[in-house]
């Protein structure tokens, strides 16, 4: 894949509520942002974990659903027209000269920015890896947690594990391509779109796919290539021929590459000061749940406050030597113009 290059004022890592609000605060101070997130949508935990759950401690909003908050923030930052880079994981941040940082993603994107804001929340959302013995030996050859190219599964014996939308969607999708699909799930109920559930049951009935109620218990193969696996059911252990195993157990948050960026950490959180929310590296900030300082509370509202203060310091890196005057959105004609409400 060809590299893509972007130059901007600030790169924000994490499109959760705090990362999104940082776009607003930086935007008010004339800083352009590119936002990178590993999920395929903005919103972070609010979108991935609790879109339908009410949040009760956002100032001025007695109750707001996770997704409503995200939608409102997206609306609020619209005037600043941020660029989003979704389904991308930042791999590396390094200083390239006195002014610029370089940020690289696993999608071959390369960013040049004067400041970097890490709003990484609980870390990167990564696929859960079931604790089956030796599974890591088969990863990327025979075990896949996401699918980029369906063709590699043509005429193969596939075992798909799970009972959610991902498991069912891929079972339906690969059934016609694979030699045989075996779906393994712990019970005969699925938590997925009703239409997918209906289709799966009819494929099982028509003997187009095999269905095993149970759990994968062991893998068999050599040199990273699977040959078969065993499934434990309520009364026996069955062996299933298997070229590729696709487990879909949802996502979990892991710190991921953040640990390798040379930042001071305390129990997997990035330590910052409480004036600028800056890390030990000048020009790299950390805001929201990913940071820690004396008295830190992991609340969205604290992240919002941190975003505002961080922006004051980021301005000094983006516009060195320029004086910053503090202004209110209620009264400043300059700010109103930026927001498109003048």
């Amino acid at each position: 894949m060809e590299k893509e290059f972007f130059e901007t004022d600030v790169v924000i890592i994490g499109a959760g509520p705090v990362g999104l609000f940082a776009v607003f605060e930086l935007g008010l101070l004339d800083m352009k942002c590119h936002v990178i997130d590993i999920l395929d949508k903005p919103g972070g935990q609010c979108a991935e974990l609790y879109p339908e759950k009410p949040i009760y401690d956002i100032p001025g909003m007695p109750s707001v659903l996770g997704m409503e908050l995200v939608d409102s923030l997206m609306k609020q930052i619209e005037p600043f027209n941020p660029s989003f880079h979704l389904s991308s994981m930042v791999q590396e941040i390094k200083k390239i000269d006195d002014v610029f940082w370089e940020v690289k993603t696993d999608n071959n994107e390369v960013f040049k920015a004067k400041a970097v804001v890490i709003a990484g929340g609980g870390g990167s959302f990564l696929p859960k890896k079931p604790p089956i013995k030796e599974i890591e030996n088969f990863e990327n050859n025979s075990v896949f947690y996401s699918i980029k190219n369906k063709e590699r599964f043509r005429d193969k014996d596939l075992v798909i594990v799970g009972g959610g939308d991902s498991a069912l969607d891929w079972a339906l999708n690969l059934e016609s391509i694979a030699k045989r699909v075996t779906l393994v799930h712990r019970r005969d109920q699925f938590r997925a779109a009703p239409d997918s559930v209906k289709k799966i049951f009819s494929l099982i009935e028509d003997n187009k796919i095999d269905f095993v109620i149970g759990q994968v218990s062991s893998l068999n193969g050599k040199d990273g290539i699977l040959e078969s696996l065993k499934c434990k059911t309520s009364d026996e252990e069955v062996e299933v021929k298997c070229d590729a195993l696709l487990p879909f157990f949802g996502l979990t948050m892991k710190l991921g590459p953040i640990a390798n960026w040379g930042l001071n950490l305390n129990e997997n959180l990035i330590t910052v000061d409480t004036e600028k929310f800056e890390t030990n590296e000048k020009g790299i900030f950390a805001i929201g749940d990913i940071n820690t300082y004396p008295g830190k509370l992991k609340l969205i509202l604290c992240g919002f406050h941190e975003a505002a203060l961080m922006s004051q310091q980021a301005y000094k890196y983006v516009y060195p030597g320029e004086k910053l005057t503090f202004q209110y959105t209620t009264s400043s004609s300059d700010l109103k113009k930026k927001l498109g409400v003048s």
């Binding site: 859960k128 799970g162 109920q189 938590r191």
Partner: peptide
């Protein structure tokens, strides 16, 4: 909760 247990292991 039962639905969510689908995303746990060794249930």
């Amino acid at each position: 909760e039962k639905d969510m247990l689908d995303f746990a292991f060794d249930v």
